[in-house]
Nucleic acid binder design. Structure first.
Lengths: 417, 417
DNA sequence: ACAGTTTCCCGTAAATGC
DNA sequence: TGCATTTACGGGAAACTG
């Protein structure tokens, strides 16, 4: 029998969106003697799946057969790259859809198969390999869910092709998971998460515990159940922040100026007794993809007062970069000269020293340029009201799949067909 | 011979985008005696065009044959509605494209043909009709150009199917054209253009003339040549404003609070001697799809000073509605209490009286809500610097075509084929 | 009715063609 | 090479479908 065998250098399963082109490459690592004819490779989607095993079925819309070629740069290896492949869903196969209605689309795992067949000395040899599991989505809004599946799979199994993985997904240790989360940030935003940030994330998942390093997180709690009192899951929330950073906060994040993951309690504890005008940046916990700043002031009797603004979301940040917002932010009340209350980035970096190089537009001097100023909402207890849809993770990772036909299984048969 | 005949109630040619579904309906107004079999109608794109007549060729991607049916609501009329039709370009027909490289894509006119054939008493009768000219585009960015063609065609010819119209397009009288332009605004934005607004548009086209009602505008000057010193044509500019109104200014426009089309000279003449804080709203002439306001102040010696802001474009207006911007606008300088300089909408309507009902978000009172404030750029002579791409006219008009098979041509032949 | 999922298609950016 | 045109696809919203 043919045995599926695993490519060696494919690191993770990936996400494919229907109707969007992707590319995949197969390389034959075995040296075949005296192959002077063309070696055709055919790629098939979900080749070996018994119908009904997955609830949705797809096929490759475009040409799926190609001839192997000697790689330009390599040691004479044969390889073939399929470009402009596109997936489309089969509609109404056998009346209705398959059985596994329990799994959501992003938990349903698929795979790409590659086959080649050639004859040497009267012996017909079949080569076959297939990809690591794939998640198929139909809209970018499903990308965060797909990415959650990819992470969980990579974290918790070494099996190359356990397509039933999400039928009963294992739990993750927080120590493992937190490392993976940090890795997401370092990979996609250039800087990972530090201990304090990860501790805050752990608290969000487990509640207030002295140490949560040996706690376990269920798949459901990670990405399916909503956070209590919130209309989104833990991962949807975290991913929305990752997206916000990627699109609007990269330089500020990379300079380590965003503390970001701080509870409101911790925030106050940190700012208390700091110089008036000391502020820090933190991500909204109540809204997807929002960032806000909080600063401390002191009343006449010396009581600390904490102020923060309504979170900035991608819409507002695409109108004005965050560094400029910080530079130009002013508190204004009727009949009072407006003033920027943000003086020192926590713990004590003068604002312009920290953000000076990150300012984009011209600073507001005299009466020349236009400038945004925001009224102080006076308290971090202001109930947030704006609803902004979460920006899904942009793809761009799922356009190249790469497989090796190494460790290939050989199968004898008695001639063609 | 078959003669193309014209539907009676189709008012204008339309625009179809490749890859986007459209619907068309054909109605048979002639009562056919004793037709007890199914009457098939076939629709063909550019049926009678000799190859090479147009530079691009298209075909209907989806099923293009359907059976006529008795209309539910009518007097037993036969009709058929084609839904989900989609156009795709034929690639590489006969090596290269046709000859007419002189016309731009939006000047190239096409048509949909409808054919039906039936036999009565041994006589085979062919029915045929076709649509008014159609413009085919591949991206919504071509919609304004397409719409310009549609307007010019409708304005200047009564021919039902002059597909060569833009080979040598006639000029338009300003008196006719201005009426059509006003009609665009009344149809798509709910309020047309008044005499003063149209006079300003005439000046833009002809320069300063006492009366331009008998001037003629060439097709090129209307939509192809750039306005001197600007990177866009007259119509591209006007359409960008129409789009801005449709998406962001509808209520303000319909209340007639936007003077809009005023030259800077006229603006100053109007505001001079008005009460300090009197302002008016006008569209940017230097940028596509921008609106600004100008107000008058007086210095100590009584000289009038005119101030205006950098134009608001769709991006900024989607962050905050225009009425709210007017309400919250404040001039701010270092060390000075900020104040809203906008007091009276020209000629003398108190700001809140005019815009009060149009305010959307909560007004900024005390220290509760956030608020945008813009620094006074001090002069309307500030060179504008931001570049914003022009929002093309949204389609939505091009999804229904409707034709009658009335006045149908009958053709005898000796049997099928 | 409703939620999960897919389809539709604008609008921007990139690719392509001439 | 530059411009005109098409293609690609993210993202929001509507349509679909059990």
């Amino acid at each position: 029998e043919k045995q599926p065998c695993m490519p060696t250098h494919l690191q993770k399963p990936l996400i494919i969106k229907t109707g969007v082109q992707f590319t995949t490459k197969v390389r034959l690592l075995v040296k075949l003697p005296e192959v002077d004819y063309q070696l055709k490779v055919k790629t098939t989607f979900d080749k070996d799946l018994p119908p009904g095993r997955v609830s949705r079925q797809f096929f490759i819309l475009t040409n799926n057969t190609k001839v192997m070629d000697i790689e330009d740069y390599s040691n004479g290896c044969l390889s073939v790259e399929f470009r402009h492949l596109q997936l489309k869903e089969k509609k109404y196969i056998n009346g209705t859809k398959g059985s596994e209605g329990l799994l959501s689309v992003t938990e349903e795992l698929h795979s790409l198969s590659f086959e080649a067949c050639f004859t040497v000395q009267g012996l017909t040899i079949d080569l076959e390999t297939c990809s690591l599991p794939l998640v198929v989505i139909s809209n970018v809004s499903q990308l965060p869910g797909g990415w959650a599946s990819v992470m969980w799979y990579n974290l918790l199994t070494d099996e190359p092709r356990n397509l039933a993985f999400f039928g009963n997904p294992p739990r993750a240790n927080w120590s493992q998971l937190s490392e993976v989360l940090s890795w997401q940030f370092s990979t996609f935003a250039g800087r990972g998460l530090n201990k304090e940030q990860l501790a805050m994330l752990g608290e969000k998942l487990f509640g207030q515990h002295a140490s949560c390093s040996d706690y376990q997180v269920s798949w459901s709690k990670f990405s399916k159940e909503n956070i209590p009192g919130k209309p989104f899951s833990f991962w949807m929330w975290l991913d929305s922040i990752l997206e916000l950073i990627k699109k609007h906060l990269l330089p500020v994040w990379n300079e380590n100026y965003i503390m970001g993951f701080v509870s409101k309690e911790m925030e106050r504890a940190l700012l208390k007794d700091k110089e008036a005008g000391t502020f820090l940046l933190r991500f909204s916990e109540s809204h997807l993809g929002g960032i806000t700043f909080t600063w401390v002031e002191y009343s006449e009797n010396g009581d600390a007062k904490f102020n923060s603004v309504e979170p900035y979301t991608k819409n507002r940040l695409s109108a004005l970069p965050f560094a400029d917002i910080i530079r130009d932010y002013k508190v204004i009340s009727d009949g009072v000269v407006p003033e920027n209350p943000l003086k020192f980035l926590y713990p004590n970096i003068p604002k312009d020293e920290a953000f000076g190089r990150l300012y984009n537009s011209q600073p507001s001097k005299g009466k020349r340029t236009s400038l945004f100023i925001y009224l102080d909402p006076n308290a971090s207890t202001t109930p947030p009201s704006c609803q902004s849809p979460q920006p899904p993770m942009t793809p761009g990772e799922f356009d190249v799949l790469c497989f090796d036909l190494s460790d290939v299984s050989l199968h004898e048969s008695n001639g063609p067909n």
